[in-house]
């Protein structure tokens, strides 16, 4: 699986959550609590003004999320 940059991302497409091991522990804990786990499908729905945050759908629930986090956790779904 290859990590992607959000500049390459397109909305209304599905991506995958990658291995979160090496990132900030607190963020990982928060993401895990919200139901994000490795291999989980993430649908990128919309971006906001200045493309600083994205609206994503995980396990059928919508979340608004920082671009920086999306950058770290999303990989291409092949």
């Amino acid at each position: 699986m290859t990590k992607i940059k959000l500049s390459e991302c397109k909305t209304n497409k599905t991506y995958l959550v990658c291995d979160l091991k090496e990132e900030n522990k607190e963020i990982i804990l928060q993401l895990k609590n919200l139901g994000f786990s490795v291999g989980e499908k993430v649908e990128l729905i919309k971006s906001n003004y200045r493309k600083k945050s994205f609206l994503v759908k995980v396990m059928g629930i919508n979340y608004a999320m920082d671009k920086s986090i999306c950058d770290k956790i999303l990989v291409k779904y092949e």
Binding site: E26, L34, Y63
Partner: peptide
């Protein structure tokens, strides 16, 4: 701060 917000229906 990290912005993660559940979007209520």
């Amino acid at each position: 701060d990290v912005f993660i917000l559940e979007m209520p229906k």
